[in-house]
């Protein structure tokens, strides 16, 4: 009989996975001539008065580490698993009359992932609705990456919903959706330079409120999109690229609309960037997103309580319930 065990190590241990931000290796082609054909100069932003802007983000937390051990088949060895919670949502900045912000579309999901494609079910935990999924991987990084993927999918769905409702959406991280919605991806870190030296020099010359001309990533590939750099703030003693973020929009949005949203981000994003002293990730970690992360973390519930509930549920199990038909591997 297979049985699930909760690892006694705190869930924070184990290799943290940065299963994000890295791009498919095929994406190296860049067309810098979509907006201007000559030499690049910084372009001023323009706030066209978008009525509401939604900042979408998600957070996740590993609640516990699991081990599935098959007493009937000890040779099989322990099979790893994780219990994780993630939350996605948006800070919607209503900009008419008296501006104010609200948290909207906030959802919390809990997920148990078992490695090696095992389809056993985590027993019911009162008050916590864990959905069990299987993945072929078997190390921590792969399990966590699975959770990350689910969270990114939820973020994408949330961004699409908000865009359909008429909000201009700023989603954290690269865009992973390519329909013609007013959704831009907001990339805080620069793992690579997309631009060749002549254009890259323009980034260094940006002042707050200015952007580079649009460029097109992967013009011949599958995940085509527009991108541009925006300077949020002048960072004292910073290098030329500090205080700069990269934004993306779907290629399907069309060049003209992409220019409009690019101008908008160049004008608006510096306004919601935090001053350097209030956030260790300033200025890139925008105030609405920082607030949202704090709120979402709160929504996940107390980590110790969640872990305790899991432990109680697993200790109470006699046999694992049969796999739920709809919860097999996806």
């Amino acid at each position: 009989m297979a049985k699930l065990y909760l690892e006694s190590w705190a869930p924070g241990f184990g290799s943290p996975v940065e299963a994000d931000q890295s791009l498919p290796p095929s994406e190296v082609d860049v067309d810098p001539t979509v907006e201007v054909t000559g030499a690049w100069e910084p372009l001023p932003g323009l706030d066209d008065g978008a009525r509401s802007i939604a900042f979408v983000d998600g957070i996740r937390r590993i609640d516990a580490r699991l081990t599935l051990f098959d007493d009937d088949d000890p040779a099989n060895g322990p099979i790893p698993g994780v219990c994780a919670s993630y939350a996605v949502g948006a800070t919607v900045w209503h900009r008419e009359d008296t501006p104010y912000s609200t948290f909207e579309h906030v959802t919390v999901r809990r997920l148990a992932v078992l490695g090696r494609g095992r389809i056993e079910q985590v027993p019911h935990v009162p008050g916590l609705d864990y959905l069990t999924e299987a993945t072929e991987g078997e190390d921590d990084a792969q399990l966590t990456a699975h959770v990350q993927t689910r969270m990114r999918q939820a973020e994408g769905a949330c961004a699409t919903d908000l865009a359909r409702e008429g909000h201009f959406v700023v989603a954290d991280g690269p865009i992973n959706e390519f329909a013609p919605h007013q959704v831009i991806g907001y990339v805080k870190t620069h793992h690579r330079s997309y631009l060749a030296p002549p254009e890259a020099a323009c980034v260094g010359r940006l002042r707050p409120g200015e952007r580079t001309p649009l460029f097109r990533i992967n013009p011949l590939g599958k995940f085509q999109r527009y991108s541009w750099y925006v300077r949020l703030a002048t960072v004292p003693f910073g290098h030329a690229w500090s205080g700069v973020v990269r934004c993306e929009s779907a290629f399907a949005l069309g060049r003209e609309e992409a220019r409009v949203v690019a101008d908008r981000t160049a004008a608006i994003l510096p306004r919601v960037a935090p001053p350097l002293h209030i956030d260790p990730r300033a200025p890139q970690n925008l105030v609405p997103i920082a607030a949202l992360e704090k709120h979402l973390r709160h929504q996940l519930g107390d980590a110790a309580l969640v872990e305790r509930a899991l432990r109680a549920a697993l200790h109470a199990q006699t046999t694992l319930p049969a796999p739920r038909p709809e919860a097999t591997r996806r």
Partner: peptide, 20 residues
Amino acid sequence: EGATFDSDVHRIGDGGFQPA
């Protein structure tokens, strides 16, 4: 609730882009 710094009141009250 949601403000950490005194200066957050400007981001909440004037700019409106920090939810609180």
